[in-house]
Amino acid sequence: MSKLIEVKDLVQRFNLTTDFLDKLKFKDGKLKIESRIVNAVNGISFNINEGEVFSLVGESGCGKSTTARTIIKLIEPKGGSVIYKGQDITDWNPNQMLPLRKDIQMIFQDPYASLNPRQKVKDIIMEPMLFHKVATNKNEAYEKCIEILMKVGLRPEQANRYPHQFSGGQRQRIGIARALAVEPEFIIADEPVSALDVSIQAQILNLLMDLKDEYGFSYLFIAHDLSVVRHISDRLGVMYLGAIVEKGSKEQIFSNPVHPYTRALFSAVPTINEESITESLELKGEIPSPINLPSGCYFHERCPFAKEICKRVIPSLKEIEDGHEAACHIL
């Protein structure tokens, strides 16, 4: 299976002090200039193969969505590289990226905010078709629009309605239809079911999997719900404070989670079975601020197994078994 996208040592940071006066601080009786930097993504690496679903999972605020937006250059990366189909696109400008926008599409988390309320559904779907010349004229675009709407479970007559006339699940179907409209090769699904009722989540997940089987495109799937990830993933990476602490195939992670943070995530999942996947592990303390990252392993302040080396040295990913890696000193 060939690689579609490679992410190498990706870094993303945000400066919160944009005003010069905000940077002026008194320290040790002297006026100094200081900046408050949010370390959102801290040197993560992974790849996604053609036709594969790779998931990023972790708590809210761990950098999953920022990673996705940086990969497709909605935000410029501060370090590392992104290679798409063998081409390094890290330093590409907007004009160079424009043809690639057709191949890479995104399904956003909030179906209420991601659709233009002033456009009818047909215009939301037809506009990218005409822009990227997937359709040569409006009649052809309209025919394709109706075909796509039916494919995602909506009726043809709904093409003339506005987004506010739909439920949350229906709006997310419109978002999926918009992504499909330009015949992409790679789709980033940024927590596409987290804002939906549980009864609707399974329908949307099944739809995404059916479309993958039909069209053969790849997904980067972002979620914090392990049950969702288990349903849809081929491989996954577990993120904590902007770093990947464990990655491997779905079977490897779910049958043998080895990093303490991954094990804690599994412990937090309610289960009706008396025997859980792994021994219960409860985390202590709060997630550190990404403005002031801990020294050494980012997780050591909350880890019940932390040793002295964990406080001083950042662990690198090491192989546990073929294709299964974890970043932990105690392994």
Rank of each mutant, 00 (worst) to 15 (best):
R161Q: 15
L205M: 15
K151F: 01
R155Y: 10
A202Y: 10
Q170L: 07
G248R: 04
F217W: 12
S194G: 07
E246T: 13
I200C: 10
P184I: 12
R161D: 14
V182T: 10
R161H: 11
R230N: 14
Q201I: 03
Y215L: 07
S255G: 08
M150P: 04
K151P: 00
P156S: 08
V238W: 04
I148Q: 03
S194H: 10
I222D: 05
G153N: 10
L226T: 06
K250V: 13
V182S: 01
R173F: 14
S194C: 06
E251I: 13
R235D: 07
I244R: 11
R230T: 05
A202E: 07
A177K: 01
G216W: 02
R173P: 06
P156R: 13
D234H: 14
G216K: 01
F217G: 01
G153H: 11
I244C: 13
E214C: 00
S255A: 14
Q165W: 06
K212C: 02
A179F: 00
A177M: 03
P163K: 04
R171W: 01
I222R: 12
S199P: 05
P156H: 11
L220K: 11
R161A: 12
I253G: 11
R155G: 00
G153Q: 13
A202H: 08
I187P: 00
E183H: 01
G169L: 11
L149Y: 02
I176L: 06
A223N: 04
F166D: 10
P192E: 03
L149M: 14
G248D: 08
Q252T: 07
V152T: 05
E246W: 09
N206F: 15
K247T: 12
A189F: 08
S227H: 12
A243D: 14
I222F: 13
Y219K: 06
V198P: 09
L226G: 05
Q165I: 03
L205T: 09
V182W: 00
G216L: 04
D190L: 12
K151C: 00
E157K: 13
L208C: 08
R155K: 15
Y240E: 02
E185F: 06
E191D: 11
I200Q: 09
L154M: 14
R230Y: 15
S227F: 04
R155T: 14
E185D: 15
S255D: 15
D197V: 08
D190K: 05
Q201L: 10
L236F: 08
E251F: 04
I187V: 12
